[in-house]
Design a protein around this nucleic acid. Structure first.
Length: 959
RNA sequence: GCGGGGGUAGUCAAGCUGGACAACGGCGCGGGACUUAAGAUCCCGUCCUUAGUGGUUCAUGGGUUCGAAUCCCAUCCCCCGCACCA
């Protein structure tokens, strides 16, 4: 259906790019630089991604029409292992991957060429530009396109890290990070960029507790080291074979899976034997901290995959422990089987250690009873555990059993007790994942110790304070993020910035075995767009991008001739580049999806503040929310999974752009719905039809309705200008595509047909559309006989001279009269032959104007108005009727705001306005319409309606 | 827990620097016009009531105000982030 749109889209895009209106060159105009956070090249994008991108283009177009020299550059982010892993899967002919490529429109003969990571990068760089951004008509400066794997970009990143180092912001220390045993570091991420399983896993920190057992240690893992004072026994799974591991001069007993994970975190572990769980049961081990021997009891719930497979038992606060203990104490057979002394087992009692609000001394015992749990495999045990942990951790205090920790809050005590045990050699730390995680390559992901990890010290106090202060001067949208960002900047700590393994990215300049990781090489890059065009054109070669070069053009350090001599770059070119940087930077808006709020934006801000001079610090941030599918993700069943070019073809690019701009505030997720997009497409068609109809109007008479329409248009232009101060595209779209259309229709319905009015209105209207639906706007603009592009025509500004309050008030009055008539007709069901309108009598208008006068002096009360009315003889003569009306008017006026009183004080000549409009009303109502003043004694008034007439509310009689 | 956001008529969604609010707009639904018919389009209606200018609404309960969906307090419910994913 949309082939006509596809045609005009291609037509105008070709013309724009041929005329280079998208290219940003320094000149005398004020500049405006806008970007969206470039996407990672992890595959095809979907229609949801285009939402934020479209905002950027529309805002850029608006600013361009407002006289700004708009710089809108684009790039992509190829750092990481996305391309590597995709290439690998293509090489392996993974059927799902092939299917995915084909479904997204990848030509089949292209697939064999995508087996190398850089081929994937280059391929998608082209897809993004051609099939997404150009296809959507973005007026981006294509000459400046860059990608993070480009050699010139990498020179820039190395410079950035040298500057971070100069600022003392690079630090090195050990780190525990998730890594595939094969591929190296991976990100654990629900979007599953790196993983085939376990994207929602979390890193959990266990405390390993060492229990003296003969010349060995049984090593339990716990998430709650603060509960050691409540230990009563030790759990071993009798059916599991544990391993003996040499750890320094100690021998540890742990489960085999935990050993396999632990070797990535602890040096020099050595497997020296095995021991059956059943052998341990019935013995005793000495618990840490309390230094008491406690019995080792059997527990089938102790899984070798979790922790170390060995568990210490704190029945007072751990529901699992209490449940298991309870069941064992009742199970004579089991006790006999394991050779346990029933007396001793039954003697074990929970030891209260924490006072928690809302609980007695032993929350676990209490909870189990309250929930009525009687089985060890009841799934609610987990729920109970979580609840108790949550309540205990945040509201509990350690009791007197806990020695020097008594009285402390649990969250404080936890850290202190852990620290104490580690210092005493009774505990160590062990990291694990909360669920099984599998790399995309199929190998397991573990937590691995990186002994010499580099970090960027975002926690630096001076840097944080400077950044926070700068944020107060920024234009941050939505305002909630403005408040939020202060907290985020505080919370933002040191961040691992390099990785090892199979990764695309820039080598770390101080140690090339590291590759700079994905977030750290994408923070300062907007400034690189100010010069990327010189590299892309070949005027500068990557090796010329030395530290002195960047110091000069970005920081103004050094002298042009020296840098020219050192780099071989022409002096005039260097000066020109330096001037470009100073002209275009800082960035006016960085737009990104909400996922950037806690990761990219703070890093983006802090890098700017850390490295660049204050005049280059960013001026604005715009955060947008998502387009989602029914279940949070865009899904095939609900649509939206179709490739972007297909959607563009099907609905038309302008319909999609209008959809994004208008469907909701940018700060709310929107569920993708094809039917809704179709509605926007048909709205555009409706507008085009209406415009055709308008162009057929050839009248020359100028009526009130002409003044009305011109006034409305100018008011709308004002509203849009105001809305766009906050880049409120939705309001702009609403005014342009909804309100204006309604106005224009009303104009024609009212019999407006002045060709001069139409010409003025169309000129404004089409320019108003240009930012959001540029292709259609160009087509219409051309249809007006305009020669240039509407895309660079001046955006309509309101002309206050043309705003005609009388025309607008009078027209609103007429609409109200019509709707009153309609209401009566509806309620009564009369098919009218004759309608008589009676406008208010003069005396009532007098009462109103007296009331308005009092109100404007702030003296309006019921008695005051009554008194004022009664002081006039002609009104006084009307007696009770006048007093009652005065009361009514006073009550009414007191409830109204100044603005409305102002509108009321514009005196509409109701009688003549209605009389002029009688023919129109008559046509609309389908009956003769007569208009009289209620003062007109000769007027026909079969039902004595005239006396109900009020100012602005004529009385109505229908027959 | 810490930090942020939200609950609006069948539905989606504006409004939330207090006042033109029974509350924009879209969809859905009902009616009418046009049409041989369907579709498209255009008009009207869509909380209750009613020959109209009345009543009750914007999670719930209080409060401030001449006036509150909009401000304050309390309560209930929901969502998001909490890290190496731009």
């Amino acid at each position: 259906m949309s082939t006509w749109t596809t045609e005009i889209e291609a037509k105008w895009q070709a013309k724009w790019y041929a005329a280079k209106i998208n290219e940003a060159e320094r000149d005398n105009r004020p500049k405006f630089m806008i970007i969206f956070a470039y996407p990672g090249l992890t595959g095809y994008l979907h229609v949801g991604h285009m939402r934020g991108y479209t905002y950027v283009d529309a805002i850029g177009r608006y600013k361009r029409m407002c006289g700004f020299n708009v710089m809108f550059p684009l790039g992509t982010h190829a750092t990481g292992n996305g391309a590597i892993s995709l290439a690998k899967r293509i090489k392996a002919h993974d059927p799902k991957t092939i299917e995915y490529l084909i479904a997204n429109g990848c030509p089949e003969d292209m697939i064999p060429n995508l087996t190398e990571p850089m081929d994937v990068v280059n391929f998608f760089n082209q897809v993004y530009q051609d099939q997404y951004w150009r296809r959507f008509g973005f007026l981006a400066d294509w000459r400046r396109f860059t990608s993070t794997t480009n050699p010139d970009y990498q020179m820039f990143i190395q410079w950035q890290f040298r500057k971070l180092n100069d600022a003392g912001l690079l630090i090195q220390k050990p780190y525990f990070a998730p890594a595939c045993v094969e591929c190296g570091p991976v990100a654990i991420d629900a979007s599953e960029t790196d993983l085939s399983k376990g994207g929602s896993a979390e890193t959990t920190e266990y405390t390993l507790l060492k229990f003296k057992y003969g010349d060995m240690f049984l090593v339990a893992a716990t998430l709650r080291p603060e509960t050691v004072y409540g230990q009563t026994n030790f759990w071993v799974n009798p059916d599991v074979e544990y391993v003996k591991v040499r750890r320094g001069d100690e021998t540890w007993v742990i489960s085999r899976p935990s050993y396999e994970k632990m070797i990535y975190q602890k040096d020099g572990l050595e497997l020296i034997g095995t021991v059956k769980g059943s052998e341990l049961v019935g013995k005793e081990a000495v618990a840490p901290v309390i230094h008491r021997p406690i019995p080792v009891l059997p527990a089938t719930f102790a899984k070798p995959e979790v922790g170390t497979g060995l568990v210490t038992s704190v029945p007072s606060d751990a529901p699992d422990d209490w449940m298991a203990l309870l069941l064992l104490q009742r199970d004579e057979q089991a006790m006999a089987r394991y050779g346990l002394d029933p007396e001793k087992v039954r003697a074990i009692k929970p030891i209260p250690i924490i006072n928690t609000k809302g609980y007695g001394p032993m929350p676990a015992v209490e909870m189990i009873e309250r929930m009525g749990i009687t089985e060890g495999d009841d799934p609610r045990l987990n729920e109970a555990k979580k609840q108790i942990y949550k309540d205990g951790f945040h509201t509990g205090r350690m009791n007197e059993t806990c020695a020097e920790f008594a009285g402390l809050r649990v969250d404080e005590a936890k850290e202190l007790i852990k620290k104490m045990m580690i210092e005493n050699g009774e505990a160590e730390v062990f990291y694990d994942l909360s669920e099984e995680v599998v790399c995309r390559c199929g190998k397991p992901v573990v937590i691995k110790k990186v002994p010499d990890q580099w970090f960027i010290d975002y926690g630096n106090v001076a840097l944080t304070e400077a950044t926070k202060a700068h944020c107060k001067t920024m234009h941050i949208i939505p305002p909630e993020f403005y408040t939020n960002v202060q907290g985020i900047l505080d919370w933002f700590r040191e961040r691992a910035c390099v990785r090892q393994g199979n990764w695309l990215g820039t080598p770390f300049p101080f140690d090339p075995k590291w590759i700079i990781e994905a977030i750290s090489d994408s923070t300062l890059y907007p400034i690189y767009y100010t010069i990327s065009n010189y590299c892309n054109s070949g005027q500068i070669r990557p090796e010329q991008l030395t530290e002195e070069f960047f110091d000069l053009v970005f920081l103004g350090k050094g002298a042009v001739p020296d840098v020219a001599a050192a780099t071989g770059i022409d002096e005039s070119l260097l000066s020109r580049i330096r001037d470009d940087v100073r002209y275009f930077y800082p960035l006016d808006i960085n737009l990104g999806g909400k996922e950037h709020m806690t990761v990219h934006f703070p890093a983006f801000l802090k890098n700017h503040v850390a490295i660049l001079p204050p005049e280059f610090w960013p001026r604005g941030i715009f955060v947008n929310w998502y387009i989602t599918g029914k279940l949070g993700k865009i899904s095939k069943s609900k649509g939206g999974a179709e490739p972007i070019p297909d959607a563009a073809e099907r609905f038309g690019v302008d319909a999609l752009r209008l959809y994004y701009a208008h469907i909701a505030a940018p700060f709310a997720d929107v569920e993708w719905d094809e039917g809704v997009v179709e509605n926007y497409a048909s709205r555009i068609e409706r507008i085009m039809r209406t415009i055709e109809e308008m162009k057929g109007l050839t009248g020359t008479e100028s009526k009130t309705i002409d003044k009305w329409l011109i006034s409305r248009m100018n008011n709308r232009a004002g509203t849009i200008a105001e809305a766009m101060n906050d880049y409120d595209l939705r309001r702009m779209a609403n005014e342009t595509y909804f309100e204006t259309l309604a106005d224009v229709r009303w104009y024609m319905r009212r019999g407006g047909n002045n060709s001069g009015t139409v010409a003025k209105v169309l000129s404004m209207w089409i320019r108003m559309m240009a930012p959001i639906t540029p292709h259609i706007a160009e087509e219409l603009w051309e249809g007006l006989g305009e020669k240039g592009f509407v895309s660079i025509a001046p955006y309509p500004e309101p002309d206050n001279e043309l705003i005609d309050s009388y025309a607008e008030v009078a027209e609103t009055y007429l609409v109200n009269v019509m709707s009153d008539i309609n209401e009566i007709l509806r309620v009564t069901g009369i098919s009218p032959k004759r309608v008589i309108l009676y406008t208010a009598p003069e005396w009532k208008r007098d009462v109103l104007s007296i009331g308005l006068e009092l109100a404007s002096g702030g003296q309006l009360t019921i008695p005051a108005l009554t008194k004022a009315v009664m002081s006039r003889d002609d009104l006084k003569r009307r007696g009770k009727e006048a007093a009652e009306f005065a009361r009514k008017i006073a009550e009414d006026l007191m409830r109204r705001a100044d603005g409305e009183r102002k509108r009321l004080s514009i005196e509409v000549d109701e009688l003549s306005y209605l009389t002029e409009s009688a023919a129109f009303l008559s046509k609309e109502v389908g009956a003769t319409v007569e208009v009289y003043s209620a003062d007109d004694a000769s007027a026909p008034d079969p039902q004595k309606k005239a006396r109900a007439a009020q100012p602005r509310r004529p009385a109505i009689y229908v027959e």
